[in-house]
C-alpha cells in the first residue's frame, strides 16, 4: 500500500468505493460542516471537501477537512491550482497530512470568471497534471517540487478529475493517460448522464489498459427538477445531459420530479456497475446531501466495508 487511505484499502480489497461531497459553508460555521458530514456517516468511504468551488469564497477545504477528520470520518482534500502557487499548495498538503488527512483530489479549478471575485488574480502556477506529479514526488521520493528533501513526507492517495464529455472527445482518453503517467491513483468523473458516451469513453480507456492503472469512479448527481436538468444541459460547460432525460424529468408532475431524479441516479449506478473499469461511484448531491444515504442504499451499495 502506498498510503493509509481508506479509499486505497477498499480498492485493494476489490470492492466498489463510494465517495460523496460536502461544500463548506460561506462563513465560520463549523456546525454546517458537521451537519453535512454526519449525514454521510456509514454510507460513504470518503467525503470530498471542495476548495472554493465555482470560484466562490468558502471556508477552506483544509479547515473543513480537519473538522470532518476529528469526527472520525474520512475527508478527501480537494485542492485547486487557481488560488495558490506551489509553495502554498505543498505547505497545505503537509499540514493536511499532519492532521491525518491522507487522500486528496488535484484540480486546476473553475476560472474566477464564474465566481464572486471575477476581479481576482488567477494563479495557475501549475496545471492539474503538474500538480499530480508534485504530490507523487512528495509521497514517493520524499522531495519537494523544488528538489529538497521533506522531513516525513506526506503520503497522499492521489485523486484527479476527468470529464469524458468535454471536447475534443478524441483527446479525453489521451488526457487521462497523461494523468496516469503523472501518477494519479483514482479518478472521479464529471456527472454522468449520457451513459452511452461514458461507456464509449470507458471502452477507449480499457482498450489501452488504463483501467488497470487507475480506479475510475463515475460521478453521479441526482437532478431535483426538470429545470435543473435543462440548466445543466444548456448552461454548464462540459456537461452532457441527453434530451430523453430532460423529457423524462419534465414528464412527471413537479412534486414527483425529485423522486424521479433519484430513480435516474440509481438506474445509472446499476448499469455502470457492470461496466468494465468502473471501481465505484462519486455521488455529488449538490446542496442535497440528505439524499445520498437513500441512493447508496437503493443502489445496493450497503454495507460499506470497514477496515
Amino acid at each position: 500500500m502506498k498510503t493509509e487511505s481508506n479509499i486505497e484499502k477498499i480498492l485493494a480489497s476489490g470492492q466498489l468505493v463510494v465517495t460523496s461531497e460536502c461544500g463548506p459553508p460561506r462563513g465560520a460555521v463549523p456546525e454546517k460542516v458537521k451537519e453535512k458530514a454526519e449525514m454521510l456517516r456509514g454510507y460513504v468511504d470518503g467525503i470530498n471537501v471542495t476548495d472554493n468551488q465555482t470560484a466562490m469564497v468558502r471556508m477552506s477545504s483544509l479547515a473543513a477537512c480537519i473538522i470532518i477528520k476529528q469526527m472520525g470520518l474520512d475527508p478527501i482534500l480537494q485542492m485547486v491550482t487557481r488560488d495558490r502557487n506551489r509553495l502554498a499548495m505543498q505547505s497545505d498538503i503537509i499540514g493536511a497530512y499532519a492532521h491525518g488527512i491522507n487522500t486528496m483530489l488535484c484540480l486546476s479549478g473553475d476560472h474566477p470568471h464564474f465566481g464572486d471575485h471575477p476581479m481576482a488574480a488567477n494563479v495557475y502556477d501549475l496545471d492539474s497534471i503538474q500538480f499530480i506529479q508534485m504530490v507523487k514526488k512528495m509521497r514517493d521520493e520524499g522531495k519537494f517540487q523544488g528538489g529538497e528533501d521533506i522531513d516525513t513526507p506526506p503520503k497522499m492517495f492521489i485523486g484527479a478529475a476527468a470529464n469524458p464529455f468535454a471536447d475534443p472527445f478524441e483527446l479525453r482518453v489521451a488526457r487521462l493517460a497523461k494523468k496516469i503517467k503523472a501518477g494519479v491513483d483514482f479518478i472521479q468523473t464529471q456527472c454522468v448522464y449520457n451513459l452511452d458516451k461514458f461507456e464509449t469513453w470507458m471502452k477507449g480507456v480499457c482498450d489501452r489498459g488504463l483501467h488497470e492503472k487507475v480506479a475510475i469512479l463515475p460521478g453521479i448527481t441526482p437532478m431535483k427538477t426538470a429545470g435543473m436538468a435543462r440548466y445543466m444541459k444548456n448552461k454548464v460547460p462540459g456537461m452532457d445531459v441527453p434530451d430523453e432525460l430532460v423529457k423524462r424529468m419534465a414528464g412527471v408532475p413537479k412534486e414527483k420530479q425529485a423522486e424521479e431524479g433519484i430513480k435516474i441516479s440509481i438506474e445509472a449506478i446499476e448499469r455502470l456497475k457492470e461496466v468494465e473499469g468502473v471501481r465505484g461511484f462519486h455521488i455529488m448531491a449538490i446542496e442535497w446531501e440528505q439524499k445520498v444515504p437513500e441512493i447508496v442504499e437503493k443502489a445496493g451499495l450497503l454495507p460499506r466495508p470497514q477496515f
Binding site: 464564474f114 495557475y124 496545471d127 492539474s128 497534471i129 471536447d167 475534443p168 497523461k178 460547460p237 462540459g238
Partner: peptide, 19 residues
C-alpha cells in the same frame, strides 16, 4: 484562460473556452 500546459481542461466545448 488558465494557462494550462497540459490541456484541454474539462470546460472545452465545441472548440470554445468555458469562460
Amino acid at each position: 484562460s488558465k494557462r494550462i500546459m497540459n490541456g484541454p481542461c474539462g470546460g472545452s466545448t465545441q472548440g470554445k473556452c468555458e469562460i
